[in-house]
Measured scan of single mutants.
Amino acid sequence: TRVETATETAWISLVTALHLVLGLSAVLGLLLLRWQFPAHYRRLRHALW
């Protein structure tokens, strides 16, 4: 049971790290898009909202 718990903890930390990385890359990508294509971003936002 001790090994299982350790594996579970490792998986949880791995998944958390993955989610953090994905979230950060998504935010960075959005910022980059907004910085590179302001007109396109505004049009996209206008279409979405």
Rank of each mutant, 00 (worst) to 15 (best):
17 A>H: 01
48 L>R: 04
30 L>T: 08
25 S>P: 00
18 L>Y: 03
44 L>I: 12
34 R>H: 06
41 Y>C: 15
1 T>C: 12
48 L>N: 03
42 R>Q: 14
25 S>V: 10
38 P>C: 05
21 V>R: 01
48 L>W: 07
11 W>K: 05
47 A>K: 14
11 W>T: 07
34 R>S: 07
27 V>Q: 03
31 L>M: 10
14 L>F: 01
43 R>Y: 07
48 L>G: 02
25 S>R: 02
47 A>W: 06
15 V>L: 10
7 T>E: 09
27 V>Y: 10
24 L>A: 13
25 S>N: 08
12 I>F: 10
17 A>D: 02
36 Q>N: 15
27 V>A: 11
21 V>D: 00
32 L>Q: 02
5 T>H: 00
12 I>E: 00
38 P>Y: 10
3 V>L: 11
34 R>G: 06
10 A>L: 07
12 I>G: 04
20 L>D: 00
33 L>H: 03
19 H>T: 03
44 L>T: 05
34 R>D: 00
17 A>L: 11
20 L>P: 03
15 V>D: 02
33 L>Q: 04
19 H>V: 00
38 P>N: 10
14 L>G: 00
15 V>K: 00
18 L>S: 01
22 L>F: 06
33 L>K: 03
12 I>L: 13
48 L>T: 06
30 L>D: 04
8 E>P: 12
35 W>E: 09
34 R>M: 07
8 E>F: 02
7 T>V: 13
15 V>S: 05
4 E>H: 11
13 S>E: 05
9 T>Q: 14
47 A>P: 03
6 A>E: 09
12 I>P: 01
40 H>N: 09
23 G>L: 13
38 P>V: 08
21 V>K: 01
34 R>A: 07
13 S>W: 11
23 G>N: 06
13 S>F: 14
33 L>F: 06
44 L>V: 11
46 H>G: 09
49 W>G: 02
10 A>G: 13
10 A>D: 13
8 E>A: 05
42 R>S: 14
16 T>Q: 01
25 S>G: 06
1 T>V: 10
37 F>R: 05
21 V>S: 11
23 G>D: 03
36 Q>D: 01
43 R>D: 08
21 V>P: 01
3 V>G: 01
10 A>Q: 11
